[in-house]
Computed example of a mutant assay.
Amino acid sequence: MSLGITLVSHVPEIAEGLPKLLNQVAKDVPITTAGGTNDGDIGTSMEKIMNAFDDNEADEILAFYDLGSAKMNLEMAMEMTDKKTVHLYDAAFVEGAYTAASLIQAGVGLDEIESQLKPLKIKD
């Protein structure tokens, strides 16, 4: 089982920039993004999220988002994807993704990753 990360942000530049940080600690972790709407505005896009899932080479995806409507679109995309499993986390966006990426890179299992993400939960 391989683990990867998908990041969903309302701001295209955040979705593009965060993987640059994560690659510093997790160069071997597949990271895909969906940032902004289809026309590059602020918001989210189901099409971009589905493409991010499809483009991620991992068997299972850990998904992180910035705002509530991104979560709604992620939940709909999770129902439609062919990926084995997508795990959605209500954690702080940057801190959660950084924690998960560094732990995946270190070979830590999903149970321990989820345990370490619990203190970062800030959304419901």
Score class of each variant (00 low, 15 high):
G68M: 04
I31T: 08
G40S: 07
V29N: 07
T33A: 07
M46R: 10
I61L: 15
D41S: 13
D28F: 11
T33M: 09
A77D: 05
G35V: 01
V86Q: 13
P30F: 04
E79I: 06
D28G: 11
G36I: 00
A70N: 11
D41G: 15
A77Q: 06
T85S: 10
D66T: 07
T44G: 14
F93D: 09
M78K: 13
L74E: 05
G35W: 03
D66I: 03
S45T: 03
A92R: 13
N73C: 08
M72Q: 05
A70F: 08
V29D: 08
E47W: 00
P30E: 10
Y65D: 03
A70Q: 11
M50I: 15
M76Q: 09
A52F: 09
G35E: 02
D41L: 12
G68Y: 00
I42Q: 02
D82N: 12
A91N: 15
A58S: 15
L62W: 08
L74M: 12
E57G: 11
A58Q: 09
A34T: 07
D39K: 12
A58E: 09
E57K: 15
A92K: 14
A77M: 07
A91H: 01
G36K: 05
E75W: 01
A77P: 06
G35Y: 12
D54R: 13
A91C: 12
I42W: 10
K48L: 15
M46H: 02
A63H: 08
F93N: 04
F64H: 02
A92I: 11
T32G: 07
D28A: 14
K84C: 06
K71Y: 10
M78S: 12
F93W: 04
D39A: 11
E75C: 04
V94M: 10
H87S: 11
D28K: 15
D82A: 15
T81G: 12
L62N: 10
F64V: 08
A77E: 06
K48G: 01
K84Q: 12
K84A: 14
I49G: 04
M78R: 09
L88V: 12
S69F: 08
D55M: 09
S45E: 04
P30W: 04
G68C: 04
A77F: 10
G40L: 06
D39R: 08
E60T: 12
D55F: 05
P30M: 07
Y65S: 02
D59H: 13
T37Y: 00
D28M: 07
A70T: 03
E79H: 07
I42L: 15
G43W: 01
D59W: 11
Y65R: 04
K83A: 12
E57A: 15
T85R: 10
L62I: 13
E60Y: 14
G40V: 06
T85Y: 09
K71H: 05
I61D: 09
M76W: 04
D54P: 03
T81Y: 07
E47Q: 12
G68I: 05
T32Q: 14
N73P: 01
P30T: 08
V86A: 14
A70I: 06
T37A: 00
T33P: 03
L88K: 07
G40K: 02
I42G: 03
N51P: 02
T44Q: 02
S69C: 04
D55V: 00
I49P: 03
E60F: 13
K84H: 11
V86C: 14
L67C: 04
V94D: 04
V94P: 02
S69W: 01
I42P: 05
M46E: 11
K84E: 14
